[in-house]
Structure formats: structure tokens, C-alpha cells
Design a protein around this nucleic acid. Structure first.
Length: 461
DNA sequence: GCATGATCATGC
DNA sequence: GCATGATCATGC
């Protein structure tokens, strides 16, 4: 049947709230097909009773509304997250470069979304998943401005003959995610001979998480950029501008100026500093809308007078079981760097520790960065493969006497491995160990980006 | 001076 | 108690 108004469509969609897919599946689709989009098909065919299509036009064409059935999950700490990105239409590289945002395939098809959220549960048959919430989604004005910027970024890259280097980390809310995983899903691009992976527009998982929290859980986040400002400046430009007045000041001076408590060793200090600089003092960083939606993580960098950080940058400890059971494409480390943007908050010491043990820290600036696709697929992949190989072979773990102490050594990739990253212990003490898949015990290990590599990134400021 | 291993400190 | 950010210590 055809719905005459959006309200009519929405009230129909709301009838599904609280129902399981089993109840909605009139034609027993779920019993027969295993395909990925089956849950969406049940909604299209059984619930709305229209034939499944994969056309460029929206599903409810007369209303210009596209239907999307999308999962969320509950985390260990009970918060909700989108289970995945929302995949939209495939990008035709050849045609998309001839459009503007308003005439783009993205905007034509996905301007109005009817979102039906269901909860995904581990070890539960998908027939028993429930629809929790149906909403007619329209992009908030400030989000739409960021999405327009993202769209431009994507199309510019195609125009520069770099469709094959597109990466989700390039953009903030709207991404270009790969779709189809084999060689046959390569497509031509207009300004390069190189075939590019087929990609679709997508709303990033982090962006979808913000929608889940807002619409399913009624959580509000706080944003620092207004739509008006985003019309003339990118999110990155706004951030840079907000931090600029404080360049050259010491951390103490900044604390005094913005009225936050100064705690030298406190992890919370830089967090407080960021939210205060952004004009939303006291907001936890995961509650800052732009950071949450774009998956921007901050990292503090402290440069020595020679312009290089003394220390490498650590990430979370390595889960060896996870590392060796995932494929490269699904690997934690690959997806971390593909999907995360980093906000480096850079400070510098102007004296060495020898010159002055109580040396002060001066704010130098920020850098918003995501790892280039080529680095992920080359150096990060190398280290991932090397670690997998070593774990399969069995690590060489030795205990050698150094002076009075006994030190644990191993043959994991060191900082000279490929210049980008290395693996190094990070435990509480000598007894803080994990068990490798083959039963060996080793001090907890961590993934580090080399300080030399960090220097290169920061020097682009 | 740098690389690598060791471990402290904070916050949830 | 643990994860993660931060930093120390030692030897080449």
C-alpha cells in the first residue's frame, strides 16, 4: 500500500515497536534465507508489503523516504552503541563527480530516513530480536553541514584520482565504506587508471551510536559548533581556532585563564582543558557531540626541546586471543586506525630535564589526524602479520640477567621493525602477565606508535 | 642519545 | 582490580 503522508508512514512504523522479527515475518523469510539484509527484507515485504528493490530512488518514493533497519547493542557498562555503520547507496565514482551535494546520489536517496532500531543480542536467534524504536530522521542542521563537508571531501578525493585511497577516517560523520570484499568489486574511477574498491556512502558507526543514544535512550550530548559557523568553516578549522589563543602559554597559565583546576599529573587535566577551551566546561569528552559522532579521540603529546617526544604513544594492551583469531580485515588494529580520528594536543618543553627538573610545559597547538590508508595497509598490516606469525610459531621469551635484575625479553617487533609501530611491555610489575594462545606466559604487551613517527605527524602542523 | 623493558599513577 | 596514560631506568 502507498502511504500518503510521512505521519501515516511513521505511525505504521511505530506499530512495529516492541515486536520481534518472528512476529513480523509473515512469509517465513527468516527461516529460509540467511542473507545479511534479511531483517530489512522482512520489514519491507511482510510489514510494509512492498517489493524489495535496489534502485537509486528512495524506498517510499512518493514521500522521498528511505527505510533502514539497523541494530544497536548494549555494552558491558550498560551504555548503548550502534552495532555497525549504516550503509547507504553505492558510490558511482564516474557519475558522482558531476554532481553537487544537492544533486548527489547520497542526497537524492537518503535525505529522509525512516530508521527502525532493533537490539542485537549475542547468542540469540535473530528472529527473537525486537524493534525498539522507529523514527523519521532528518539531519539536524549542524550535522548536515558536517555531512556536506564530508561529501565534498569524498568527491574531491575522487576528482583527484584517489578513489582507491578513500578511507573512513578521512571524514567526520559521512563515510565511504567498502562494499563487497573480493576483486570483482573493484570499480573504475574517472581520473585514474587504478581500479578502486567499490564503496558506499555510510553514516559512521560513531554517528549511528549518537543517534541510538539520543533516540533509543533519550541521552543528550553537548556540541561546541553551531550550524551557522559550520557553513563557513570545517570542524577542523573551528577546533584549530578555539585552541589558537592559548598557543605559547604554559599549562598552568591556561588553567588559570580558563578557570580550571591545575593538576600536573592528572589525566583529567587535558580533558578538562579541552572541554573548557571549547566553551563547554565540565563536559566529559565522550559527551561532546562532535567528538562522539566523528569518533575523535584525543592524545596528549609532549615534545622535548629537540621537537621529538621522548616517549612513544601507547594504545590499549594487546589481546593476543583476539589478535590471532581475527582476519586482517576484521582486525581490531586495522579498524581502530581506519575509523578513528585523533586530536593531538601538543605541548612542548623548552628546557631539557637536565637543565631544569621542574621545567614547564608550553602549549604548542593541535593536530587532527587519521592514519593514511596506505600506512594501515602496509606497515600496520606488516606488524599484524608478524605478530600472528610469531604467535603461531611460539614466541621466544627469555629471561636474562642485567646487572642485579632479571629481565624478560622477546622477539616481538621492535621500533626498528618498519619505523611506524612496535610492540612493548606494559604491565603493573613483573608479575602482570597474560597467557598466549599456546599457553606461554608473557608480561602484558602494548601496541605503540614510534615517537619518530609521531614527530613526523606533528611536524606537519 | 636512543631503544627496550619496567613500573608508577590515576580513574573507573 | 584493572586498563590505560605516563614516565622511569638501564645498557649499548
Amino acid at each position: 500500500m502507498e502511504y500518503q503522508t510521512k505521519d501515516e508512514l511513521l505511525s505504521k512504523a511505530k506499530e512495529a515497536e516492541g515486536k520481534s522479527f518472528k512476529e513480523l515475518d509473515k512469509y517465513n523469510r527468516l527461516g529460509n534465507i540467511n542473507a545479511k539484509g534479511a531483517l530489512g527484507q522482512v520489514i519491507e515485504e511482510s510489514f510494509f508489503e512492498y517489493t524489495v528493490n535496489s534502485e537509486a530512488r528512495p524506498d517510499f518514493e512518493n514521500l522521498g523516504v528511505e527505510l533502514k533497519v539497523t541494530p544497536f547493542k548494549r555494552n558491558k557498562n550498560q551504555s548503548l552503541s550502534a552495532k555497525e555503520r549504516l550503509v547507504l547507496n553505492i558510490i558511482n565514482y564516474i557519475e558522482e563527480v558531476n554532481t553537487t551535494f544537492d544533486t548527489s546520489s547520497f542526497w537524492k536517496k537518503n535525505r529522509n530516513l525512516l530508521l527502525m532500531f532493533y537490539e542485537w543480542l549475542p547468542n540469540v536467534n535473530r528472529q527473537d530480536f525486537y524493534i525498539h524504536k522507529s523514527i523519521l530522521f532528518q539531519y539536524p542542521e549542524e550535522d548536515l553541514e558536517v555531512i556536506k563537508q564530508d561529501w565534498k571531501t569524498i568527491v574531491e578525493k575522487i576528482r583527484n584520482g584517489k578513489a582507491h585511497e578513500l578511507s573512513e577516517g578521512d571524514t567526520n560523520y559521512l563515510g565511504a565504506c567498502t562494499k563487497g570484499s573480493n576483486k570483482s568489486s573493484l570499480r573504475s574511477q574517472p581520473f585514474s587508471e587504478i581500479k578502486a574498491m567499490q564503496r558506499a556512502y555510510s553514516l559512521k558507526q560513531s554517528y549511528m551510536t549518537s543517534l541510538v543514544r539520543k533516540y533509543v535512550n533519550q541521552e543528550e550530548m553537548i556540541s561546541f559548533a553551531k550550524a551557522e559557523e559550520l557553513k563557513t568553516k570545517t570542524l577542523e578549522e573551528i577546533l584549530t581556532e578555539r585552541f589558537a589563543p592559548y598557543i605559547g602559554l604554559t599549562d598552568l597559565e591556561i588553567a588559570n585563564r580558563i578557570g580550571i583546576e591545575y593538576k600536573n599529573k592528572s589525566k583529567a587535566f587535558v580533558t578538562n582543558l579541552i572541554s573548557a577551551l571549547l566553551g563547554i566546561k565540565g563536559t566529559k569528552l565522550d559527551q561532546i557531540a562532535e567528538f562522539a559522532k566523528a569518533n575523535i579521540q584525543f592524545k596528549t603529546v609532549r615534545l622535548e626541546p629537540n621537537g621529538k617526544p621522548k616517549e612513544s604513544m601507547s594504545f590499549k594492551n594487546i589481546d593476543f586471543q583476539e589478535w590471532t583469531s581475527e582476519s586482517w580485515k576484521d582486525s581490531y588494529i586495522r579498524n581502530l586506525f581506519l575509523e578513528t580520528k585523533f586530536l593531538f594536543v601538543v605541548f612542548e618543553y623548552k628546557e631539557t630535564k637536565e637543565q631544569n627538573p621542574n621545567r614547564q610545559l608550553f602549549f604548542k597547538g593541535i593536530k587532527i589526524w587519521n592514519m593514511p590508508y596506505s600506512t594501515i595497509e602496509k606497515e600496520i598490516k606488516q606488524i599484524w602479520e608478524e605478530l600472528n606469525k610469531l604467535i603461531t610459531e611460539g614466541l621466544q621469551i627469555n629471561y636474562v640477567k642485567k646487572g642485579k635484575k632479571i629481565v624478560e625479553t622477546n622477539n616481538l617487533p621492535k621500533s626498528n621493525f618498519n619505523g611506524i609501530a612496535h610492540i612493548r611491555p606494559k604491565g603493573k610489575d613483573g608479575n602482570d602477565k597474560v597467557i598466549l594462545p599456546n599457553g606461554q606466559a608473557i608480561t602484558k604487551q602494548c601496541f605503540w606508535l614510534n615517537n619518530g613517527y609521531i614527530t613526523e605527524i606533528i611536524n606537519e602542523i
